[in-house]
């Protein structure tokens, strides 16, 4: 294990932003997945989606834990006491649950993104990030196998499943660049070898997604890599979807100012 990079204050600030965004993506996606618990199409898949939800939320705890180590708030503070305008997740993960095709398509896009992100993060010069990435990657292998299986089956299932899958992708694919867009501090992190270079990562993810869609007999989308400034995407919440999600998620935690813990 290499010595952890000593981060200056600028890099620390940038890394805090990035780790928060990583955690927020995982938490919000896990939250959406957890909405299926008890309502999935069949018992076995109910168990499977609850597993994915636990994994993603567990990953959020890992990333938030690194925020805390760098002097930030603790994970519960981050999750339950920030408002929507302070969250840094991509819009892709906070869209409402939708049907099973939407959930599996979204999960596939996120899993494909992580399949490219995590091996790169394992080479981070900041050892705690590399270690956390290794843990997350272990679980993501199964996620990708599961969501890719569904993508392929729904594409070649019935007319209805193909129609629903296509509709889901039509809504989701335009949001993929927002997931890949760099945050303002990412370039500095990339220069220090802490975080992968945004454009190279985006190209790899888009190539992987395009190839998988093509293999499933779906139209290969024309996806433009995100513009540099698109990281701002993560802060724009014009439609109140995230705010509504958080209002429910945080309702009990914020209900009792005298409570010292739950």
């Amino acid at each position: 294990m290499s010595e952890p990079t000593t981060l200056g204050s600028e890099l620390t600030r940038a890394l805090l932003e990035r780790l928060t965004a990583l955690g927020d993506d995982e938490l919000v996606l896990g939250h959406r997945d957890s909405e299926w618990t008890g309502h999935a199409p069949i018992l076995e898949e109910d168990i499977a989606i609850a597993n994915v939800a636990q994994d993603e939320i567990g990953h959020a705890v890992l990333w938030y834990g690194l925020v805390e180590q760098l002097g930030g708030p603790d994970p519960d503070r981050l999750a339950f006491f920030r408002d929507a305008d302070e969250y840094r997740n991509a819009a892709l993960v906070d869209r409402p649950r939708g049907d099973w095709a939407f959930t599996m398509a979204r999960q596939f896009l996120f899993d494909a993104y992580e399949a490219e992100l995590l091996p790169r993060l394992e080479r981070s010069s900041y050892a705690p990030v590399a270690d956390a990435a290794a843990k997350v990657r272990r679980e993501e292998l199964f996620h990708l196998r599961h969501s890719a299986l569904w993508l392929e089956r729904l594409a070649h299932g019935t007319d209805e499943s193909r129609r629903r899958l296509t509709a889901a992708l039509d809504e989701l694919l335009p949001l993929l660049p927002g997931l890949l867009a760099p945050l303002p501090g990412d370039a500095a992190l990339a220069a220090a070898g802490v975080y992968p270079e945004a454009a190279e990562l985006a190209d790899a993810v888009l190539a992987r997604v395009g190839a998988a869609l093509e293999a499933a007999g779906l139209a290969r989308p024309t996806l433009e890599p995100p513009a540099d400034a698109a990281g701002a995407d993560r802060r724009q919440r014009p439609d109140g979807v995230l705010a509504a999600l958080l209002a429910e998620m945080q309702s009990v935690a914020r209900s009792d100012p005298q409570a010292e813990g739950w």
Binding site: E44, E45, I47, A48, N51, F142, R145, H146, L149, R153
Partner: peptide
């Protein structure tokens, strides 16, 4: 079969 193996792991 492939799905069954994933579901076995899940359950």
């Amino acid at each position: 079969a492939e799905h069954a193996l994933l579901m076995a792991r899940t359950v």
